Simulated scan of single mutants.
Amino acid sequence: MGIERIDGCTGCGTCVPTCPTDVLRMNAKTKKAEIRYPQDCQVCRLCQQYCPVDAITISDGRAIPAITAWG
Score class of each variant (00 low, 15 high):
Pro38Leu: 05
Asp60Gly: 15
Ser59Pro: 08
Ile67Cys: 12
Ile35Pro: 00
Gln49Lys: 10
Ile64Arg: 03
Pro52Gln: 02
Gly2Glu: 12
Ala33Pro: 01
Pro65Asp: 09
Ile58Arg: 01
Arg45Ser: 12
Val23Asn: 06
Thr68Ile: 15
Tyr37Gln: 13
Leu24Asp: 01
Cys12Met: 02
Leu24Ser: 00
Pro52His: 10
Gly71Glu: 12
Pro20Ile: 05
Cys9Val: 15
Cys15Lys: 07
Ala28Asp: 15
Gln48Thr: 11
Asp54Phe: 10
Glu4Leu: 15
Val53Glu: 08
Cys47His: 04
Glu4Phe: 11
Gln39Asp: 15
Cys47Ala: 11
Val53Tyr: 02
Ile56Val: 07
Cys51Trp: 03
Thr21Gln: 07
Gly11Lys: 00
Gly13Asn: 08
Cys51Gly: 07
Pro38His: 05
Tyr50Ala: 12
Thr57Trp: 01
Ala28Tyr: 03
Met1Gln: 13
Thr18Ile: 01
Asp60Gln: 13
Thr14Asp: 08
Ala33Ser: 11
Gln48Asn: 07
Ser59Trp: 07
Cys47Ile: 06
Leu24Gly: 01
Val43Ile: 06
Asn27Pro: 14
Gln42Thr: 07
Gly8Lys: 01
Tyr37Glu: 13
Asp7Met: 11
Cys41Lys: 06
Cys41Glu: 09
Ala63Val: 15
Gly13Gln: 13
Ile35Glu: 00
Ala33Leu: 02
Cys44Val: 01
Gly13Ser: 12
Arg25His: 00
Lys29Val: 14
Cys44Arg: 01
Thr57Cys: 02
Leu24Cys: 02
Ile64Gly: 07
Lys32Gln: 14
Val43Glu: 14
Ser59His: 05
Arg25Asp: 02
Asp60Leu: 06
Trp70Ser: 06
Ile3Gln: 04
Ala55Trp: 04
Pro20Leu: 12
Asp40Arg: 11
Lys32Pro: 09
Cys44Tyr: 00
Pro52Lys: 11
Ala55His: 01
Thr10Phe: 10
Pro65Arg: 15
Tyr50Asn: 11
Val23Thr: 06
Ala28Met: 10
Cys47Thr: 04
Lys29Arg: 14
Ala33Lys: 09
Asp54Trp: 05
Ile64Trp: 00
Ile35Val: 13
Gly11Asp: 12
Cys19Ser: 07
Thr57His: 15
Cys19Val: 04
Arg5Trp: 12
Thr18Leu: 05
Ile6His: 13
Lys29Ala: 13
Cys41Asn: 03
Arg36Lys: 14
Glu34Ile: 12
Met26Val: 13
Pro38Phe: 02
Ile56Leu: 03
Asp7Trp: 14
Ala33Arg: 01
Ala33Gln: 01
Ile67Leu: 02
Cys41Phe: 00
Ile56Trp: 05
Arg25Glu: 06
Ile58Glu: 04
Glu4His: 09
Arg25Thr: 00
Lys31Arg: 14
Pro20Gln: 06
Val53Met: 01
Pro65Gly: 11
